[in-house]
Simulated scan of single mutants.
Amino acid sequence: MESEDIVYSKAYRLIKPEKFEEVILEHTINHNQVVVQPILASICHADIRYYTGQRRKEALQKKLPMALFHEGIGRVVKSKDESFFKGQRVVIVPNIPARRLKAPLINEKSSSYRRIVKDNYLPDSFFLGSGYDGIGQQHLVLPTENVIPVPENIPDEIAVLAELTSVSLQAANYVSDYFNDGRIAVFGDGPVGYLTAATLHHVFDISKENLLVFGAIDERLAHFDFATTHLVHDFNFREEANVISVIECTGGKFSNNAINQAIDLIEPQGKITLLGVSEEHVLLNTRDILEKGLTVYGSSRSTEDEFKTLMNEFQNKAFQRTLKKLIPNKNEVIRNVQDLEKTMDKAMKSKDWKKTYLSFKWD
């Protein structure tokens, strides 16, 4: 039973590694908030790390129990903002600054900072599926800024890639002022590397000749037909010329090699953006960072600005054809906790390069 300002949400909460529990959550709907029912989600490697218990013990203790997933789309169920209508298809922006959840201060800027800090770097922000219940629930109550309409000519399976692509877009923006001065390299042949390279090609018009992608698996690199590809184990990074910006997308145990290879590769006063996530500390060749005068950026998550840009860019049919390579042959239907556990068990063992999609059936 629901009142005008309360909505109940069936949620699949991860209570410990490899174990979900169905619970009912109660959400209050405040001014300028929208109720969204998720219809399609994509599994991120971060979700797998939570499910398998590969996060640090203290992180799991702090963040569980929690509904997973932060890559997704849904339909509007109810809105206190007249610019949205029931049944409207929207993409979900998972990064929520705390100021947006504190009615009536939703539209006020934080006064605790003397300089402007982007929403995705504010320490008091919330992120769906990371210490805050994510998309794996029946109803999300979100600020209007976290709900972006999906144009009719963007299919669901393309729109759900917006979150991961938005992370790539933000990383590219850090080095975009160098794009006309030389070549750009991407390290990583997984989905993040692919979407980053695709964004550079389709959004920033980087040609195949000026876009280098380095990876470890030939079969994966074959998908990057819009870029010049190289295997890392047989490439001399110190001999390549005119690479002035790099985006590292490897993460995990491969971060150490990839970042140091990027340092070997890049020209003096070049820019490197680090996008891959590692649970361990990474050793860097600081001598060459200093001698070359390199600028190194850390990039994490994104804001609604990147999502809005992508809802325009995703309407490009050529971009859609590139993105379709990551779409699975079928979506996994999720009707209950058992369906979700079976799907996560399969996903954690899968070596498939493509994404895993969850099609939620709530009734």
Rank of each mutant, 00 (worst) to 15 (best):
I6W: 07
V7R: 09
S9N: 08
E18N: 12
F20D: 06
E26R: 14
H27W: 02
Q33H: 10
V35H: 09
H45K: 11
D47M: 05
Y50K: 15
T52N: 14
E58F: 11
L60T: 10
L60C: 12
Q61E: 13
L64M: 10
F69A: 14
E71A: 09
E71R: 14
S83L: 10
F84E: 11
A103E: 13
R114F: 09
R114K: 10
R114S: 01
V117N: 02
L122N: 07
F126D: 12
D133R: 09
V141I: 02
L142A: 07
P143M: 15
P151A: 11
D156V: 03
V160A: 07
L164C: 06
A171Y: 02
V175E: 08
S176L: 05
Y178H: 14
R183L: 04
I184S: 00
L195W: 13
T199K: 12
V203R: 15
D205M: 15
L221R: 03
H223W: 14
T229I: 09
H233T: 02
E240H: 01
N242Y: 14
I259K: 07
A262T: 06
I266D: 03
P268L: 12
T273M: 03
I289R: 00
G298A: 01
G298E: 07
S299I: 06
R301P: 04
M311F: 08
K324S: 05
N331F: 14
N336K: 04
V337A: 07
K351T: 06
D352E: 15
D352T: 11
K354W: 10
K355S: 00
K355R: 11
T356Q: 04
L358Q: 05
